[in-house]
Design a protein around this nucleic acid. Structure first.
Lengths: 204, 204
DNA sequence: CCGCAATACTACACCACTGTAAATAAGTGA
DNA sequence: TCACTTATTTACAGTGGTGTAGTATTGCGG
C-alpha cells in the first residue's frame, strides 16, 4: 500500500499566494506570538508545503520584511491621517486631542496592522528592526516639528522639543501596546479626558 | 589514536556554578540579544558541557526565570532607592526631579541589570513575562499613590492618576530602553532640565 | 596516599526546522 | 484530447538544539 499522497492545495498565482502567506504569518503571530514563527509553521498554517513558501520568498527574513512592509504601509497611512501636517494657526490643544482619539481608534480597529510594528521583539531580523527604528525616527522628527510650532504659537520658549517628542513616542507606543493586547479593556474617552486635563493644567 | 578528551573545567559547588551560568546567560544576551540564548549556548559560554547546566537548572525556562529573579531583585532595589515612599509634605517637583535623575543614573550605571527587565521580548517564557508584568503593576500602583498624594498637595482635583501612572511607566521604560541601548549617547541632565521646564509649565 | 562521593564528560536517540532536487499533478491552449 | 507549462508535492541531506544514561575524573576526608 503506497503512502497516501497529500491532496493538492488549490493553485494560486504567485501574487495571490504571497498575500495568503503573509496573512498566515500574521495569524500565527496573533495566536502564538513571534516565538511561533517559522517557514514550516507558515506553510502549515496556509495548508501548503515548504517549497511553496520558498517559491515566493527567499527565506524567513525576507518574508518577515515583506510582512512588515505591508503592515507598515497601513500603519503609516493611519498615522498620517491622524496627525496634522502643520498647525496652521489652529488650536494646538484641540489638534492634539483629535490626534490622540484618532490614533487610539485606529489601533483598536486594526490591531493586526499595529501588532507587528508595536510588538516587534529583538528576535526579528535586524533588517526589520532597523526599518521600524527608522520609521520611528521619521515620525519623531515630524512630531518634533509640530511641537516646536505649537510651542511658538503658545509663547513657550523653554521646550526641549527633542526630548518631548521622544517622550510622546514613548507614551504613544506604550498605550498602543496596551490597546493591541487588550482592545476591549481600553477606554479611549478616558484617555482623551486625561489629555484634556493635562492641557488645562499647562494652561490651554 | 583515541579522540582527545576534553579537559575538565574546574569543579564548582552548585551554588557557585549557578551564578556562573546566570552570568554566562547575561553575557550572551548583552552580546547577541535574546535570540542567541539556549542551554547549549550558555554551556559553551561558561566553558562547560550541557549536562552541567541540566544539573543546576531543569531547562531553559527555569534558568531564564532564575535569571530574571536575580536581576529583578537588583532592579527593584534600585527603583525603591530612587522613588520616595511618600511625599511627607516635601516639594513634589523636587522629589520628581530627584527620582528621574536617580533612575537614569541607576540604569546607566548598571544596564546589565535592567536589560532583561526592560527588553524582555515575547519569546521569553510566559512565566517570565507574567512576572515582569506583575512587577510593573506593583510599581504602577505605588506610582499612582504618589501621584494622588502630589495632586492633593497641589490642589489639583481632576488628575486621572491611573492613566497618569500608566503614562509615566510608559515614558520611563522608553527612556530606560534608550539608556540601556546607548548609555553614552544619553544626556541625563538634559532630561532632568526637560522635566524641570515641564514642571514650571504646570505651575511648579 | 587512597577510597569514594561529587562533579564533570561522552555518546546517543530524538526532534524541529532549513533548503533543494526530482517527481507529479493540474490546468490551458491548440 | 494531448502536449506543455506551471504549481505543487515527496524525499533527502544537513544543522543545531534537547534531554538523559552511562562513564570518567577530580579532589577531599581520612
Amino acid at each position: 500500500m503506497p503512502t497516501a499522497r497529500r491532496p493538492y492545495t488549490p493553485r494560486r498565482p504567485p501574487e495571490e499566494r504571497r498575500e495568503q502567506l503573509l496573512d498566515a504569518a500574521i495569524a500565527i503571530i496573533a495566536r502564538d506570538g513571534y516565538a511561533g514563527i517559522s517557514i514550516d509553521a507558515i506553510a502549515r498554517e496556509a495548508g501548503v508545503t515548504r517549497p511553496v513558501v520558498y517559491g515566493v520568498f527567499a527565506g524567513l527574513g525576507p518574508l518577515l520584511y515583506a510582512l512588515l512592509d505591508r503592515q507598515e504601509q497601513r500603519a503609516l497611512g493611519q498615522l498620517a491621517a491622524a496627525l496634522p501636517t502643520d498647525l496652521d494657526g489652529g488650536d494646538p490643544g484641540a489638534t492634539l486631542i483629535l490626534a490622540v482619539r484618532r490614533l487610539a481608534e485606529a489601533v483598536r480597529a486594526d490591531p493586526t496592522t499595529w501588532r507587528p510594528v508595536l510588538l516587534a521583539p529583538d528576535t526579528m531580523p535586524a533588517a526589520v528592526r532597523d526599518r521600524i527604528a527608522s520609521d520611528r525616527e521619521v515620525v519623531r522628527q515630524r512630531l518634533r516639528t509640530l511641537l516646536e510650532a505649537g510651542a511658538r504659537q503658545l509663547r513657550v520658549d523653554d521646550l526641549d522639543a527633542e526630548i518631548a517628542a521622544h517622550a510622546a513616542i514613548g507614551v504613544a507606543e506604550y498605550f498602543g501596546r496596551l490597546i493591541v493586547e487588550d482592545p476591549e479593556g481600553f477606554d479611549t474617552e478616558r484617555l482623551v479626558r486625561a489629555v484634556g486635563s493635562l492641557l488645562r493644567a499647562v494652561g490651554l
